[in-house]
Design a binder for these strands. Sequence first.
DNA 1: TGTAAAATGTTGCAAATGCAACAAATATAA
DNA 2: TTATATTTGTTGCATTTGCAACATTTTACA
Lengths: 209, 209
Amino acid sequence: MTNLFENINDKNIEKLKRILKANTINYRKNVNVLSNVNQDNFIALIDTGSVQLTFSDYEGNKTIIDELSSGEIFGSLTSYIKNEEVSCITKEPTQITFIEYTEITNDEIFKNDFYIIFIKNLIKLLSEQLEAKNNRIEILTKKTTRDKILEYFKIQSQSKGSKIFTIPLSYTELANYLSVDRSAMTREISSLKKEGFIKTNGRRITLLY
Amino acid sequence: MTNLFENINDKNIEKLKRILKANTINYRKNVNVLSNVNQDNFIALIDTGSVQLTFSDYEGNKTIIDELSSGEIFGSLTSYIKNEEVSCITKEPTQITFIEYTEITNDEIFKNDFYIIFIKNLIKLLSEQLEAKNNRIEILTKKTTRDKILEYFKIQSQSKGSKIFTIPLSYTELANYLSVDRSAMTREISSLKKEGFIKTNGRRITLLY
DNA sequence: TGTAAAATGTTGCAAATGCAACAAATATAA
DNA sequence: TTATATTTGTTGCATTTGCAACATTTTACA
């Protein structure tokens, strides 16, 4: 994952943050970040820590939109934050820097040659998030629970470059991510093991095909 | 939807295209655009017409990734085009402009003051595509076919600002987009009509709640 | 360290859904 | 216009899945 300030030195990062009127806030664990954010058009950059973005519908069903960690962004550019049903919960102590979107093209910023690096990073981040969403859509469009699991494992395996990998989610969270019933998912994983397609040891998966 | 060249006048658009070494190609209907594209990192801009991006898995199941029309972009920034299983079929005669990603930050481009408008448009386009993908994920994570249909209708209704709207897909394509069996979807839409939740007339839908 | 909370594993059952196989209605193109 | 292809509507049936309910294990934290 690209970092928003990648390839910019510390001194220039500080300068850039000043020009962007960036506002840095520290949060404890399990706090709803968006509750005290009232800006309309903002980019939130996770400096350290991690958050989970969830969406609750009118019936109270929760779905994970995204899991983000250090260097990644969220906000009006990436999710429908305006919507009050979205919440952003810190999974650990987390530092977040808020930038108003309009500041990204303010007058002062052009004078600096690191600006173009910043813009390229931003574009790269957005396109990486698009790829992540494409992956999830690819999984969710599979008809059966089994195919969803296998597609997820395939993507994990490819990104790690190995048939052995550790999934970054708990099984409860995975069921949520795949949008299937947790018990049905466990049932299917058991079958996959019995039929010799995979081996598991906790969250460590081995593909046997 | 934002247009990539929004708020740039015709003369400057021409200049910008020249600086970006843009390459414009015309396609007939039902042509696979990607078959003769060999660039690795490109942005494809649809000037006129429309295309359908689809993904085929190893079993030959086709899923729609996206439907795009005039002003919208696709390519390495927005989808996993490198993958040969992705195809891009024109739905009508279509003109597409290809831009290599690296040109977006070439030396000559900074000298022009319309450049920042172009970058803002690009960022806006990417974030709009993210929103579209978030919408689709929101739909796909619904557990039942009924909830998927209703979520889709809700989003359509909101974007049109009316309880009466015409869906932009055929029912066959809609089933594909929702990733449900077409006959099961028809069955569910019939029930929704019988139970008085909606009225339909071809692709024109009226929400009665 | 002990205790409450959260995560994981398992199963029966009812409901939802994919699939197949049609007929009928529309749309497309020669 | 006519023939052909595509889309739409409908139904029976087998399979998959969500749901509920529970036991067991692991984790978190006071």
